[in-house]
């Protein structure tokens, strides 16, 4: 007996529908671009966007000088990589500061009933506030350079991490905590040997949410006041009315944001939890 052969992947109904939706959207976009119904260039053709994306990623238009071990090297690179680097280190520093403080505060709140009841409501209700409103304060505290953007990222990231860690602490199996105590583990050992391994998933989840909001906080701050970073490039494209470039930048940003989100989820094993 021969088993019926499965249809090729692209002929499966779900895949076919996906392809149909993508083709329809792209065709509608192109038709709208050609029709001129919206203002000229607000909806540029896909070819123009593709060209802008290609130029953005490949055409070297910024000279960089590196002085290493007394050897001065100068070369040109596409400017986007420099701006991505600036945004990346702002986000990285913001994440490190926000995650570490969130972790410490979360562990403190999660391990004490009194502290939780006294301070967690403050974090819980402050968490959903629009963090960008703190940007003027951050400028006054840390200046107009990368410091204020790092601070914005750190503030944005702090709340989801702290709340997730505090929640995760309460979910830890009491048996594990009693085992740690029966071995007379000190606070540091309890944190590193019991709490952190047992809270891996809530921490990763908090970091994942934190990364999303940190990215938003940092980039929005860049769009408001900066002279480098991807947010600055977006505003430059807006000021020059270079719409294909703006679309290209947004594509790059969304790919990075969604990719980073998926990567953290996969590294943290969140997909495994969902499948179980």
């Amino acid at each position: 007996m021969t088993l019926p052969r499965a249809a090729p992947r692209f002929l499966q109904p779900v895949t076919a529908l996906r392809i149909a939706i993508i083709v329809t959207v792209l065709a509608s976009w192109e038709a709208l671009a050609a029709s001129g119904l919206l203002y000229r260039d607000v909806v540029p053709s896909l070819v123009a966007i593709g060209k802008a994306l290609f130029n953005l990623l490949t055409v070297p238009d910024m000279s960089v000088q590196i002085d290493m071990l007394g050897i001065n090297t100068a070369f040109t690179i596409p400017a986007i990589y420099w701006h991505l680097y600036v945004t990346f280190y702002e986000i990285a520093f913001g994440m490190v500061i926000g995650c570490l403080t969130g972790l410490v505060v979360g562990i403190a709140l999660g391990s004490s009933r009194l502290l939780r009841r006294a301070y967690e409501p403050m974090l819980y209700y402050l968490g959903p506030c629009p963090k960008i409103i703190f940007f003027p304060v951050m400028i006054m505290w840390f200046g107009v350079g990368p410091g204020s953007k790092i601070a914005m990222g750190a503030i944005s990231c702090f709340f989801p991490v702290a709340l997730n860690v505090a929640g995760g602490m309460r979910e830890i199996d009491q048996v594990l905590i009693r085992v740690g105590r029966s071995f007379r583990a000190n606070t540091w050992q309890m944190v590193t040997k019991i709490y952190l391994p047992a809270m891996r998933h809530p921490i990763i989840n908090g970091v994942r949410i934190g990364l999303g909001v940190c990215l938003i906080g940092t980039l929005l701050a860049e769009t408001k006041l900066s002279n480098s970073g991807v947010g600055f490039l977006v505003m430059q494209a807006y000021n020059l009315f270079n719409m294909p470039l703006m679309y290209a930048l947004l594509i790059v940003l969304f790919v990075i944001a969604i990719g980073a989100n998926a990567l953290i989820g996969r590294l943290g094993g969140l997909d495994d939890i969902k499948r179980r």
Binding site: L38, L219, M246, I258
Partner: peptide
């Protein structure tokens, strides 16, 4: 779900133009 996770607020310059 991917759209829900994306930093959509960053498209505000685009809306400013439109």
């Amino acid at each position: 779900a991917a759209v829900a996770a994306a930093p959509l607020v960053l498209i505000y310059p685009l809306y400013l133009v439109i």
